[in-house]
Amino acid sequence: MTPKTHLKFIEWRNTAGLHEDTLQSISELNFLKDELKFLKKIVTEYALNIIVEKTIVDGAKINTDLGRYTYRAQQLLKDLKVHANQLKVLLDDIDVPDELQVYKAKHYKLMLDTLDLHVDVKKTKRKIFSLLGAIIKNNKRRKISNL
């Protein structure tokens, strides 16, 4: 038995639309992986300042979060690629009861998981830029007071 979806949109999508969704999500997740590498590099480069500013706990949590997001993105990419390949099975001429509903339910879950990951990364990016902004302001204050 497949779970009922709350988004009727997925139920109305044809197989071409589902395939487009999947390919779009794969593309976005590939970009997100690169973005996570960049954010991790920024946190690493500013690690000394983060330690000096006594915000090591925030920096460590952010670094941990970035690692978890990278893992989630890799898992979602694998799942989405398998999901995209399963569309071929869906399009064969063999009629299997509830095959389309099962595919759409999985599609719905993958799309929600992708959206959740994007939301989590966006929150962490805000924390990173807020933390770096505070460090930069503090460095400017120090330079001005040393003049």
Rank of each mutant, 00 (worst) to 15 (best):
T70I: 07
K37E: 13
H6N: 09
L147Q: 07
K78C: 00
Q101H: 07
A105K: 05
W12P: 00
G59N: 10
V102M: 04
E20C: 00
L39H: 10
L90D: 05
L29D: 02
D65P: 00
L110Q: 03
K78V: 01
V102P: 00
L91I: 00
L77K: 13
L29I: 15
D116K: 13
L76K: 13
T114K: 06
T124N: 10
G67Q: 02
D116S: 08
V102D: 11
M1R: 06
H6C: 05
K127Q: 13
H118T: 09
R68Q: 04
K81N: 12
H6E: 10
R13C: 15
L76N: 03
K106E: 14
F38H: 08
L110R: 04
V82I: 15
A105C: 09
L87I: 06
R13Y: 13
E53V: 06
G17Y: 13
V82M: 10
T15C: 04
T124E: 13
V82N: 13
L110T: 01
L76Q: 06
R126H: 04
F9T: 11
L66W: 03
D21T: 00
P3G: 03
E28N: 15
L80H: 06
K8G: 14
H83M: 02
F129P: 01
I26V: 12
Y108T: 10
E11Y: 07
K40M: 04
K123T: 05
V96N: 03
A60S: 13
K4F: 14
L132I: 08
W12Y: 01
S27T: 15
H107C: 05
D92R: 15
D34P: 01
K109G: 00
N139K: 12
L91R: 15
L110P: 02
A47R: 07
N30K: 11
R13W: 14
K106S: 09
K37F: 09
A16P: 00
V119I: 15
R142A: 05
A16G: 01
F9I: 10
N14E: 10
D92E: 11
A134L: 12
E28T: 14
L132Q: 08
V121E: 00
K127C: 04
N14G: 02
F38W: 03
Q101S: 11
L80Q: 08
H6M: 06
K143E: 10
D34I: 02
T5S: 06
A47N: 05
D79H: 15
S145F: 02
D92T: 15
L91P: 01
R68H: 08
L23E: 14
T22C: 13
L29C: 08
K33N: 09
R72M: 00
N14M: 01
L66R: 10
G17N: 12
E20Y: 12
K78A: 01
L48G: 07
A47V: 07
Y69H: 13
